[in-house]
Design a binder for these strands. Structure first.
Lengths: 213, 213, 213, 213
DNA sequence: GATGAATGAGACTTCATTCAT
DNA sequence: CATGAATGAAGTCTCATTCAT
């Protein structure tokens, strides 16, 4: 679970975070993931980050502000990455859907795995914080979904994806990937999980399932 | 969201619950689903259930005990239902996998939809309460998974499911269904969701994806 | 510590107690002694006495009423016993102070030991309940102390007790006996206490200490 | 009863207590003495100490922790004082037992009187908190009793104390002193107690009672 | 008489947040 | 910037007591 230590270090140049701030964000991320936002106290975070409780509020204004700061890099970083991939489609980098999906899942899963803890916080807390959901939709959907729709239509025209409402295709892809990741999260410590093989099977399954008759 | 009001009424004969107890469980289920276990206070529950706060603790001993009482019917009721379906396979009730899966998803989804709120609580709280996970595994897995493995092997022999490790098949089915349900939960209020059609697509997708080459 | 089980049975004829009432008093006595009045809950008492909580209040009106019922037999029974002893002095039953004191301590200690638990409750709770103190003084002092003063004066005249204010004599005797009993209570389980020998030493010490020059 | 106000002030340099902490300890000591530990609420203590209730728990972790902090100075301070006295015996400071006992009782009583309230809490709560008893025994007994035994043997050899098991001598002395103090505590407000004279009588009584035949 | 479900006040404790240092 | 003592509102839970059955 500590494969993603020093999470906020790399982005710190972008975000100009001090050591203390990074320590707080790391501690908060771990604790929010483990015990949930509501189940974590600011004093625990302070203790784990080895700072005074007041320091947290100096930097993040409130506990909720801290949650947002934990989650927002995830949201802010993911969208550009996705867009870059999608653009490659029309640059002819992907002739086959499968190549796109493989590359996509691969990159994304790597990212999610590297930031598993932040990701867990994101999906665990989204149901309880409408603003998060909106922020998420705004950054991911609004911008990206439009693009994704075009691309799916593109591959449907090329006959690589069966006829089906575009949103259902999206749902199926997303839910399969989601299911894949959720399974990983739930099984996380049991480790009888051959990541590469499972990923292959998931992709193959997706392709066949979505193929035209 | 109130399609599943009076949840605990039907089972009350089995569980011998008094009116107050049912009121408490209903209120708790709704609030836990909406705000999470840790984000809900017992005083809120008491107010919503229109009982004194003390009454909650008379009946459920602790807040955690209340959570368990909210969730355990879900766990206890689901396993027998699943088993009954599975047994039909060898009674020749299902010649085709698709029939089994259709019936299965259909029944289960109906159940989950009817008890959506309880279900939401279950999946939201499982990450934070190891005992829940264990209880869940013990009731669902231990007993059912063995049976499911036999059945998948059965259909693989009949050539209706492609060659693939059995556990991966299970994972894919479960994660597809899960994804389906999660999507429903996330979209819940937006209601641009044609349930019947989406279900069809999900099944069709599953069948094609799992079919042999 | 269970040498005094069925405490309230013998006196039940006098007090006309039902089985339930006796059970409640026994349970309350044990628990008050062990955890103190304020540290014991009526629900604990009910459970230990194997009655419903309501039953306690039917019979004893309030928790405080129960305490009084636990303690008052002690107060009511002790005074007559003491008086009987004291009267023997002038019936020439005791030529020597030592005989009186020996008989007195002996009887009283037997009584206290037999009712150790009730006694513990009495001395533990007296500091917190002024009414108890008053009741105690009224029953023991008012009536008895007068008599005791006469007797001590009697033995001082006979030259068996040294010149000293009578109340100081009383205090010394009482505090010696008290000290003796307290020691017993504190050491209670350790059992390296030869009761007979210690009693002899206490008496001998008292006699010598009180003797005239 | 307020002869021992600002109890924790003097020791504050040793214990580094803040003003608030001292106020809390003082309030707690008074209330515990008056109404017992279980009979006192933390909100009462907070009100009397004029702090927020939360402050109590910041400093003392729990109500029980507060009790320990009230009592432990008593235990920690008393042992060194006793030892210092005892050492004087072999420095020939006390040729006669009586001198030792007089000095000893005198000092100790002064201390107890000055800290009467703390002392009351100690003896009232010891029966309900086994750890207290153990702590007390460990600090007082283990170290001191050994020394006391030597000294009593010393005076028995010098023929100033009669032949008697050493532990019985200790018990008699302790119980006499205890009785003396208890009497004081019970009579506390009635004030018909000539302290100096009673102390003299107690000592004289002790000496005669313990003298050899 | 006996029960135990129900109550609501109040117990102990935790928490997010503030502010003087 | 950073601290951590202090706060008081709110949280979970216990309690003595009542009352319909």
């Amino acid at each position: 679970m500590n494969r993603d230590k020093r999470r906020y270090t790399m982005s710190s140049e972008l975000l100009k975070l001090t050591e203390k701030q990074k320590a707080i964000l790391d501690a908060a991320t771990d604790l929010f993931a483990e015990k949930g936002f509501a189940g974590t106290s600011t004093s625990e975070i302070a203790k784990k980050a080895d700072v005074a409780e007041g320091t947290i509020f100096k930097h993040f204004k409130s506990k909720k502000g801290l949650l947002l700061s934990v989650i927002s890099p995830m949201i802010k970083v993911i969208a550009p990455m996705v867009k870059k991939d999608l653009n490659k489609v029309f640059d002819k980098d992907f002739e086959e859907v499968e190549d796109l999906i493989r590359e996509f899942i691969d990159n994304r899963t790597q990212f999610v795995v590297k930031n598993m803890t932040m990701f867990r916080v994101l999906i665990q807390e989204i149901p309880f914080h409408p603003e998060l959901k909106e922020q998420f939709i705004e950054h991911i959907s609004k911008d990206v979904v439009v693009r994704v729709r075009e691309i799916i239509a593109h591959y449907q025209e090329k006959g690589q994806i069966g006829e089906m409402p575009i949103d259902s295709v999206i749902r199926i892809i997303v839910s399969t990937v989601f299911g894949h990741v959720i399974a990983k999260l739930l099984i996380i410590d049991e480790a009888e999980w051959d990541d590469k093989a499972e990923l292959d099977r998931t992709i193959q399954f997706l392709m066949k399932g979505l193929a035209p008759e």
